[in-house]
Structures are given as C-alpha cells and as structure tokens.
Simulated assay, not measured.
Amino acid sequence: MDARLHPLFRPIQMNGTDLCTYYIEQPPSHPMTAYIACFWESGTTSYAGYNPLESVPGRVLPDGCTDILITYDAVLQQHSFAYCGNYTEPFAIPVSVEVNPPADYTFGVRFFPGGARHFHGLSLESFTDRRFPLEECWPANIDELRERMAGTKHFEERVQVMETYLCLLSGDGSTYEKDLMRNAMHRIFVHGGQMSVKELASCEVVSERQLHRKFGEWVGISPKRFSEVVRFHCVLRDIHQGHRMDWSALAQNHGFFDQAHLIRQFRKLYGETPLTAASEHRRMLSELYNRSDEL
C-alpha cells in the first residue's frame, strides 16, 4: 500500500480504564510503514485499591485492520500464535477482578487496511470475523519466529523480532491492483467514508462488481462496509475531541440522513449509543487525570 494513507485514517480503539491491565503501541520502522499501522501489546499487571465496577470497559471496534496475535500464557509459560481477520462487530473486553492476575500478555501486529496481503498473498475475505492458528495461514518460518519470540523479555524486543521476521517476507501482487486500492482508499479517507460505491467506482473507472471483489481480496470487507467503518471512526474522533454534542449537526456533518440514522449506525459499530461513547470517554479522561495526580 502507501504510507501516505496513514495520516488520513487513524482508527480509535477504546482501551478502557481497567487498572489491572496495560496497553502500549509503537509505530513501525520506515520499511514497514506502508503495511503496518502499529505494533501493540496488552497485558495484566497488579494494582490495588480500585473498584472494577467503576472501570470503563475496553472495546474492540471494527477498523478495517487485521492482526497477528502472539499470546503468552504465564501459567503454562508458552506462546500461541494466531492471525485475525477483520472484525465486523464490536465487543467489550471484560474488566479484570483479580488484584494480582498472572502476567499474561498479547503482542500484536496491526496491519493497515490492505497491508497484510503484501505478506501472505491471500484473499482477506476468507479471514473476516475469523481467527486462525498462524501456522495454518502464514507463509513460512513460523517455528523460527516462535523460538525467537520465546527468548524476548520486553515489548521492544518483541517489536524488533517481528520487524526482522516480516522484512524477510517479500510480497508480490499486481501494480494495477495496488494502485487501484490505494486510490480508492484515499478517496474514502478524504471524504470521510461518505462516497457511494457507485461514485467510487466511477472515479476509478471500474465496475462496482470489480471494486467489490478487490476490496474483498485486499481488505476483507466490501467498499460500502469499509466506508461505514471509516465514517464511524470520523464520528468517534469528533466525540473524543470534545466537540459540542449537537447530535443533529453531527449527523448532518457526517452525511447521515438524520440523528436516528447516526445512532443506528454508531450502535452497530460501537455496541452503544454516541451518548454512551461520550460518557465513557469523559470517564477515561477523568481516570487518567486522577492517576496522573496520584503519581
């Protein structure tokens, strides 16, 4: 794909305020920026003196990305490797109720929409809403990756191991297809997901059917669905930036028919209403401020 697309689309993930967990991200090095959105890790830690019932739950939101997941089980002292396609529906992450949970973690590679195909060359449509053991669908050298990952102690080491591994994989693919997908996604991002598939196909001088097929192969979902995801994240970003919550104006600014249409589409991708999202964001900011004050 093209690293110049990344500033146009920065999807938001709700990490919640569970003080028994942590979440960190790191951007890729320059050779990987065209394909990878970020490396990330979430895991458990210990924190006393908080009420889990008052925590904001973390949420995994549809974002058009796919992920390699490497999960470490502290009890078994072993890693498991998986590849996850697009999630088309949101889900909440349960809040931890243990004061001293095991030191489990999940390390992830989040591929920018269209980026993963550069490495495995497979149609992303077959992975949508599914999770596979990595050895069943990834090109090669999984045993070597498993061995090197087992020797890591910190997030930064895991990033280095994964970048080295991915740099060795050479991607092929039609230049025409790459240009088509890059241009189509650029239009979707610039217009905030508000272009119709008919308009998009016309601008790229392809049929709607062909565009639908290419999005299935490169992103895993239809151009219409991907546009809905992009528009949803534009709305969510407005909410997180603290813009005045005039829901009718927000609906109009993002191309919804009316407020009810906005709420229906938002609930489909967030799991709750925009009002709940605004409330959860305020609580997250308050929790962050309180923790900073304590430190």
Rank of each mutant, 00 (worst) to 15 (best):
D104Q: 02
F232K: 10
T44V: 04
R4T: 13
L295E: 13
S202E: 14
K268W: 06
A277N: 07
I93P: 01
Q259F: 05
L288A: 15
D172C: 09
Q13Y: 04
D129G: 01
L5W: 01
T17V: 05
D2H: 11
G193F: 09
G173E: 02
I142Y: 01
I142K: 02
A277L: 04
A48I: 14
S222M: 04
H120V: 02
G220M: 07
N183C: 14
L269C: 04
D73W: 02
Y87R: 11
T152C: 15
S29P: 04
D258I: 15
L76E: 10
S279E: 09
V229L: 13
C137A: 06
C84Y: 06
H212I: 07
D246I: 03
R130K: 15
A103H: 11
G151W: 01
F112I: 06
P57L: 06
E98P: 01
D67E: 14
F107G: 01
Y87L: 12
P11N: 14
R4I: 05
Y165L: 00
E228S: 13
G220I: 09
P223F: 09
N141K: 10
I239V: 08
P11E: 11
D293P: 01
P223N: 13
M181F: 13
G151N: 12
E54L: 07
R213D: 08
N100K: 11
